[in-house]
Design a protein around this nucleic acid. Structure first.
Lengths: 277, 277
DNA sequence: CAGCGAATGGAATATATGATCCATTTCTGT
DNA sequence: ACAGAAATGGATCATATATTCCATTCGCTG
């Protein structure tokens, strides 16, 4: 009797093998398979007991999984996950510095990815250092008091607004996203009162719809919290509180990372403020 | 008498400490020190016995070496060598601790911001290291050939899709976002042919609308490029090409940074590919 | 619904592994 | 060269860990 003709000795083959068997794996074994591919580092370093606990199975299931694949035990399987990590650190450090330095070898698409990642990281660093605690607290206070939070954004800023609206919904905070360029919006906006609040997001070139709506609402006495990119933004003039977020860009498209982080911070902080109150 | 004030928790500090003490180390301990810095991978994965044999010393010498540096045993020392191999884990761990140093100074909202920023940075690091050049190139090729690119996403993934659609528009690439849960979508989808392509974005818990639509399109022969969070995602099964993006989360909401970066990379790279062609 | 085989949980077990201890050797200073 | 201290080798011990085994549950088929 001979062993499985080619038992994976490297991580990529193992991964392929697992993916191939995925469909016909018993429930718990599939659970282990998913955990293993999602957390390869844990497999490499953990003990059978700790991994089992973390994956929500029994240690014996890990051994069965390894044997099912053809290994003679968990240890043999683990060695594959360890092999993957060997001699990897250099390339990691190299890549980080290479990334900061600029484009290098690899296909063009890789260069683009590096560009977007580094633009995002730059933006995140920037907001971390430039954000004022006082401003953040004030904005949270204003939004936490609002009956309904209107979220105002168009075009490039729209993704931010839609994620905020999604999160507000999950957190059971009443909110209303204003999206269509025309349509029902004017009527919806006329319902807003000073006991509500607005989050307006707009970057240069500022969408007139957002600007006009924000101004109208401000004139109705509704407090406006703005996220924009410059002190000279028209939003900064009408808003009660405004944040300046400097987003780095890549190939003409700005990262939204910092804006997203700020938007989600406001969302979650408002939820926590209300829960504490 | 108190312990060494700052025992190295990361490899670089440990390395510096060893280098500093190198001159005044006893013979066998110096031998271990040299071996450890030359073969860090061995220390990370080997057992005390195997390392000792390989370094030409007794196992007990390894324990003495660790204790001499201030650790309470070989295991503690080894964990430093293991941390080093957890590629991105270390670098984001550094940032996390840096961010966690000041959660008490500053208001709660500041803590939330730190959380979202560090989740984003972690995700960005992760995608940088896990992304395969080959996969990226293949996806770009598929999308560059498409007559119309359909973008499929719901709920949490929707912000990503909307930014992609915005960027495609700016770049004069014909695209169609599929948003409504019902409505016209089935009819729009029936127009898709194998000469088009689909970008589908979905994370656990997977929106059935996205999954079903992706499957239908795949069965029509339309190539599907998927962005999802696990090899076991239903999208991974139907897609021609799929990306696994691990997003860290904060307070239950995942960062979208890495997904955004990937989505924009695909968008811009497709535009460049078409321009070059 | 009954019966069978596969799959699973969990305790028991054999073993591998890190840590301790002491006798011996090797340095160091006088 | 000699005492004393530091360092080292190697056996012993306690424990952590992977593995095995069996009773129970689950899922399927006749």
């Amino acid at each position: 009797m001979n062993v499985e003709p080619q038992l994976p000795r490297d991580y990529d083959s193992l991964r392929a093998l697992v993916l191939e068997q995925r469909g016909e794996l018993p429930k718990r074994l599939a659970q282990v398979a998913a955990y293993a591919l999602d957390n390869p580092d844990e497999i490499a370093f953990g003990t059978a007991a700790s991994i089992a606990a973390s994956a929500g199975v029994q240690p014996s299931t890990l051994i069965r999984f390894a044997q099912h694949l053809g290994y003679d035990g968990f240890t043999s399987l683990q060695s594959v996950f360890r092999q993957r990590l060997r001699g990897r650190t250099l390339s990691y450090e190299e890549r980080l510095t290479a990334l900061r330095q600029g484009p290098h070898e690899g296909p063009e698409s890789r260069t683009v990815l590096n560009g977007f990642v580094s633009a995002s990281q730059k933006s995140l660093d920037a907001i971390l250092h430039s954000m004022s605690d006082r401003l953040l607290e004030e904005a949270v206070s204003v939004l936490a008091k609002a009956e309904t939070i209107y979220v105002l954004a168009r075009r490039r800023s729209y993704p931010v607004a839609s994620y905020m609206a999604y999160a507000f919904g999950k957190l059971k905070i009443r909110s209303q996203i204003i999206e269509s360029a025309a349509g029902l919006d004017p009527e919806i906006l006329s319902f807003a009162t000073p006991r509500d609040a607005v989050v307006a997001v707009s970057f240069s070139p500022y969408a007139t719809g957002t600007i006009d709506a924000a101004r109208t609402l401000a004139e109705q006495g509704v407090p406006v919290v703005a996220i924009t990119d410059s002190a000279f933004s028209p939003l900064a003039q009408t808003a009660k509180i405004w944040f300046e977020v400097a987003e780095a860009d890549c190939a003409g498209f700005r990262s939204l990372s910092a804006t997203m982080a700020l938007a989600m911070t406001l969302t979650v902080a408002v939820a926590e403020r209300r829960r504490d109150a």
